[in-house]
């Protein structure tokens, strides 16, 4: 499914110099698996999500990312979306003046077009959007507003999951989807994600806290620090981490926080 091999990536900082954030990252996720990445602030978790989704300002200096035989790093963001990579943003972007329905239609049809499929007609689109938004408790009022404008923290995250449900990607990255959510909102989001687990679709769940993993059960848990994975285990690793804190795991690592 997805294979990340010895990835190194830098970010360009204000004065034009480059700072290496991802320092030899390796990961393989098989179809249907849920992997969690936990790590302290500054470990490079969000940078990893941006590098995988193709955001400007990040430079891959070496390594490779392979999705079902496709060289992901050679693609621009929209092509990655069409390949089936989806990033649920930590901070979903507000887009004033762009209505939710207009946005979702444009996204669905853009991906279909890249797949060489015909655009979905108005009725098909309506059914698709209505059905998925109901499942996530997204009101008509939210759908009539501009994308993320005036949405609460929980509504913004639900909107990310809605887009995920509608676009049906094969590899989903959830970047701190639990941040800013109360326990009820987190449950709704987790349920939305769990519904999308179908044995084929893979997930990379980035989080600070074990809490989210009570609801989205991972197959594999990785601890990331200083730009790479320092320990891998099963769901029990997250519990152990919650108990002992990061210090225990980072102790022996060179350059760790």
């Amino acid at each position: 499914m997805i294979k990340i091999n010895n990835l190194h990536a830098s970010v360009e900082i204000a004065d034009g110099t480059k700072k290496e954030i991802i320092k030899g990252f390796n990961l393989e996720i098989k179809p249907g698996e849920v992997h969690a990445i936990m790590g302290p602030n500054g470990a490079g978790k969000s940078t990893l999500s941006y590098v995988l989704s193709g955001r400007d300002g990040y430079k891959v200096t070496s390594g490779s990312v392979d999705v079902d035989g496709i060289d992901l790093l050679a693609l621009n963001p929209e092509e990655r979306a069409a390949v089936g990579v989806f990033l649920a943003f930590q901070y979903p972007v507000e887009i004033p003046g762009v209505n939710m329905n207009v946005f979702l239609k444009a996204a669905v049809n853009a991906v279909r077009k890249q797949h060489g499929e015909e655009e979905l007609d108005a009725l098909g689109m309506l059914k698709l959007i209505k059905g998925k938004s109901r499942e996530l408790g997204i009101t008509d009022d939210m759908m009539s507003r501009a994308v993320n404008v005036g949405f609460s923290g929980g509504e913004k995250k639900r909107n990310e999951i809605l887009q995920m449900a509608i676009l049906e990607p094969k590899f989903c990255i959830l970047d701190e989807t639990d941040s800013g959510l109360d326990i009820d909102a987190m449950k709704v989001v987790a349920e939305g994600v769990n519904k999308l687990r179908d044995g084929e679709r893979s997930f990379l769940v980035i989080t600070h806290y074990q809490r989210l993993l009570d609801y989205i059960k991972p197959d594999v848990v990785h601890i990331m620090a200083d730009g790479k994975i320092i320990k891998t285990g099963d769901a029990g690793l997250a519990l152990e981490l919650e108990e002992k804190g990061y210090g225990e795991f980072l102790g022996g690592e060179e350059g760790a926080v």
């Binding site: 989704s53 621009n76 963001p77 979306a81 991906v111 890249q114």
Partner: peptide
């Protein structure tokens, strides 16, 4: 916002226009 739209599959030109 440009990156947000492109990450959902819209081409750069389409995202800019929108």
């Amino acid at each position: 916002p440009l990156f947000y739209l492109r990450s959902r599959g819209l081409s750069e030109a389409q995202a800019r226009l929108l």
